[in-house]
Design a protein around this nucleic acid. Structure first.
Lengths: 211, 211
DNA sequence: ACATGTTTCGAACGTACATTAGATTTACGA
DNA sequence: TCGTAAATCTAATGTACGTTCGAAACATGT
């Protein structure tokens, strides 16, 4: 164990990378240890030197994914000037979340894509972690609303879930090269803060026929 | 075959219902034919009287799910008065999509949840159908933008994907009883058209007491 | 060069699953 | 009541997969 990175650490990382990538692509159940091992350059049996089971490997992938996006958003807030506006804070959080999701990070996108279909027992082990991340967002939004930057009539919980959905769903359609991540974040913030509807001054009521 | 519904049809429907429900819950690969059969009140082998393979069963579930939401949104548009505003048209589409997703329909939510992790060959068979649905939305949005109801500066494609994401993600968090489907649709439309940011005319900086 | 610990291999095991096919039961018209 | 077709059952088959374990290969300090 001379170098900083032992051989074991390197292999472990390769296995995790491969697992995250394939879990994201095909889901957990459909991904075989044989595939993961091949992608990591070894035999299936060798995985057990590093991980106790397929489930354990899954749990580590999920954990890393959630930790990364959590840390990214947290740091985005800490990096802001202390007197930043609430809009800027939310914008920074949106950018951090989206960038983590779409830039290299198979771990976070794997977590988002497969979590709902993972064995229930595994889900239980990660609920606390997910709640903590949700709490981070709740905090940002609540502060913004209390200070008057966000409308006080809206159900912030619903807004937050809609926002997270809009962002998370990007893993299903985003492909590098077409639209930039920044452009997506900008559109999201524009919608969130201002909407994209045009007020028609002549016909100021938009509420005939409510069905 | 006396009645309108032959026994075969009834069994077939029960199998499909069970399959949609479990695919939605656990994903495709993790769902076994034994479970589906049990939920449908029969033995695994009996499924093959109705379906040629597990894949074939999957494809029918996916097809039904997409067809239902497509028809729902289409009918929502046809039901509107001919002179309806573009906002009302979009609002009706949002409500139709969301209601289909969250009200009883395991087929549509199964489609949305598992499509990205289904065997690639199966995906190919449904791309056309998905494109057709996307086209329906694109049409609604394009008309609205051209007529001036939506800002002309925005990338409508991005907005549409963000919107679909916000709606689709609701299958991951919505639980009947808490927030009504209508409330979710209302919040979505509010965000889309007006946003929830507050303009602060007097004090254009909204940055006291941060942290 | 040797010895010891680390990492990977390779083959084998057990199991769970999709699928098949013949036997059995059910429904129903004659 | 009987006969036939529809629908389901039951048991068997093959296979793919997660997992195990002892042997082999590799690395490293002495």
């Amino acid at each position: 164990m001379t170098s900083e990175q032992s051989k074991s650490d390197i292999s472990r990382a390769r296995i995790l990378d491969a697992a995250a990538k394939m879990f994201r692509q095909k889901g957990y159940a459909a991904t075989t240890l044989i595939e993961i091992a091949r992608a990591a350059g070894m035999q299936a049996g060798s995985l057990y030197y590093h991980f106790g089971s397929k489930d354990e490997l899954l749990e580590e992938v999920l954990d890393i994914g959630m930790r990364r996006v959590h840390e990214a958003v947290e740091e985005s807030q800490e990096r802001l000037p202390a007197d930043s506006s609430h809009r800027d804070r939310i914008r920074a959080a949106v950018e951090a979340h989206l960038t983590t999701l779409l830039k290299h990070d198979d771990y976070t996108s794997a977590n988002i894509r497969i979590f709902g279909q993972v064995p229930e027992e595994v889900q239980q082990h990660h609920i606390r972690q997910r709640d903590a991340y949700a709490e981070l967002w709740r905090h940002i939004f609540t502060k913004a609303q209390k200070s008057g930057a966000l409308s006080s009539d809206v159900n912030l919980g619903v807004v937050r879930m809609l926002l997270m959905g809009a962002l998370n769903w990007s893993v299903e359609w985003y492909r590098p090269g077409r639209t930039s991540i920044q452009a997506i974040a900008d559109h999201m913030c524009l919608m969130l803060f201002n909407g994209i509807g045009i007020e028609e001054p002549a016909q100021s009521r938009e509420n005939e026929t409510v069905t």
